[in-house]
Amino acid sequence: MRYIKDIPNPRFKIGLYQWNSKYIIRIESGMYEQTYKIDDYEVASTDELEVCMDEDFTNAVASRFDAMHGDFNGSLIRHNVLF
């Protein structure tokens, strides 16, 4: 996987990569991450992908991170890993 660049964002670490004829957008928040893939022929440049990291999208990402945390925490509690 080839690192291309970081996409500036005040809430998340967003990295852009290229691998296997796809762009990979990796969004990290603490111990969780989300990955989005798009065929590289779908976009003219990486700048198009950077523009897509707008407030509406990052708000949806934040909601998904909250859900991921709730799901994982719930499982840890159900299995007596956390009390």
Rank of each mutant, 00 (worst) to 15 (best):
R2L: 15
Y3M: 07
I4L: 07
I4A: 05
I7C: 05
N9F: 02
N9M: 06
F12P: 00
I14T: 03
I14K: 01
I14F: 01
G15P: 02
L16H: 00
N20I: 08
N20T: 07
N20R: 03
S21T: 13
Y23H: 06
Y23F: 13
I24C: 07
I25K: 06
I25C: 05
R26F: 09
R26T: 02
I27W: 02
G30M: 00
Y32I: 07
E33K: 08
Q34L: 09
Q34V: 06
Q34Y: 07
T35N: 01
I38Y: 01
E42V: 11
D47A: 13
D47Q: 09
D47N: 10
L49T: 04
E50C: 02
C52I: 00
E55C: 05
D56H: 10
V61N: 03
A62R: 09
S63H: 10
F65G: 01
F65M: 03
F65W: 05
F65K: 03
A67S: 15
H69M: 11
G70V: 12
G70F: 08
G74V: 05
S75Y: 15
S75N: 12
S75T: 11
L76R: 10
I77V: 08
R78S: 14
H79Q: 11
H79V: 08
N80K: 12
V81T: 11
